[in-house]
């Protein structure tokens, strides 16, 4: 398929018995912004990958280029050099194969919850009956069947993000890109949303790239973390989350969890 050098394939071969293919490959990607005070390197030679059905999270201090990287992958921003590809195809612009969930609420206010979820399908010209089937499924998945006909202004923040997730999934993208989707939510809602997302990943076999500032959240959700640093924005460490620790909130006070968390925090502050 692709001829990208060893790291990915080795990784897959050594650590995972049933080798998963790489969904996303980022190869020495750089992004430079030209500003009034000169040029600013937001991303410097970043290389990374995301496997099929993998949950990968980017953590790092504010301004280290997490959103920039996600936006390049979404096709909303152009790389200055290097490349990014999805399933072997080079990313050159936005497309329905990558669903994006933003931190800000981006539902279409003039559409009902159901029509929001069906938006991508309608663009494609999917017939009404089929659209209904899909929206029914995702309304149920995110627990908003009762709100199918509500307008976004009638929803709480958490509900809005659930619709945004459903809207992205209904398009059956190859992967989800999520930029701090739960940052604006209160602790309880946030925790519910994490559970929901884990459920979704299991049921939909979704490949997800996630961004968060919350280390607990990162450990709870991810199989792998990339820790980034700023000036210039770069990846400084890749951390594998032990399967036992993942998705297990009870372990939050255990020694290994605290150790892992400390390791990440130290990296961020070093």
């Amino acid at each position: 398929m692709n001829t990208f050098p060893s790291q990915t394939e080795q990784h897959a071969a050594v650590k995972r018995p049933a080798a998963r293919a790489s969904k996303i490959i980022v190869d020495s990607l750089s992004k430079t912004y030209t500003t009034k005070s000169g040029s600013f390197t937001a991303l410097d030679q970043v290389s990374a990958h995301i496997l099929e059905n993998e949950f990968v999270t980017l953590v790092g201090p504010s301004g280290c280029g997490k959103s920039t990287m996600l936006r390049v992958l979404a096709g909303l921003e152009e790389a200055s050099s290097g490349s990014a590809s999805i399933a072997g195809r080079r990313i050159t612009g936005p497309g329905a194969d990558r669903g994006v969930v933003f931190q800000s609420y981006t539902l279409f206010p003039w559409l009902s919850v159901r029509d929001n979820i069906e938006f991508g399908l309608e663009l494609k010209g999917t017939p009404k009956l089929q659209r209904l089937e899909v929206s029914d499924k995702y309304l149920e998945l995110v627990g908003l069947t009762k709100f199918a006909d509500a307008y976004p202004k009638q929803l709480s923040g958490g509900m809005k993000q659930r619709v945004a997730i459903a809207r992205a999934l209904a398009n059956s993208p190859e992967m989800l890109l999520m930029d701090e989707p739960f940052a604006a939510l209160d602790a309880q809602t946030r925790s519910d949303m994490q559970e929901l997302l884990m459920n979704i990943q299991k049921h939909e076999h979704a490949t997800i790239l996630f961004i968060t500032h919350d280390i607990d959240e990162a450990i709870f959700l991810s199989e792998r973390l990339y820790v980034m640093k700023s000036r210039p924005g770069r990846i400084v460490r890749e951390i594998e989350i032990p399967a036992a620790m993942r998705q297990n909130k009870e372990l939050r006070d255990s020694e290994p969890f605290i150790q892992l968390k400390r390791e990440i925090v130290d990296l961020l502050h070093a």
């Binding site: 979404a74 096709g75 909303l76 612009g93 936005p94 497309g95 329905a96 990558r98 669903g99 994006v100 933003f102 800000s104 981006t106 279409f108 003039w110 938006f119 991508g120 663009l123 494609k124 809207r167 992205a168 398009n171």
Partner: peptide, 23 residues
């Protein structure tokens, strides 16, 4: 954000104009 969200849902330029910007 609204325009960008619609691009990521697969909208082309004309669709963004007609189905998002206008409404």
């Amino acid at each position: 954000d609204l325009l960008q969200a619609s691009y990521t849902l697969g909208a082309g330029k004309l669709q963004v104009l007609r189905k998002v910007l206008l409404p």
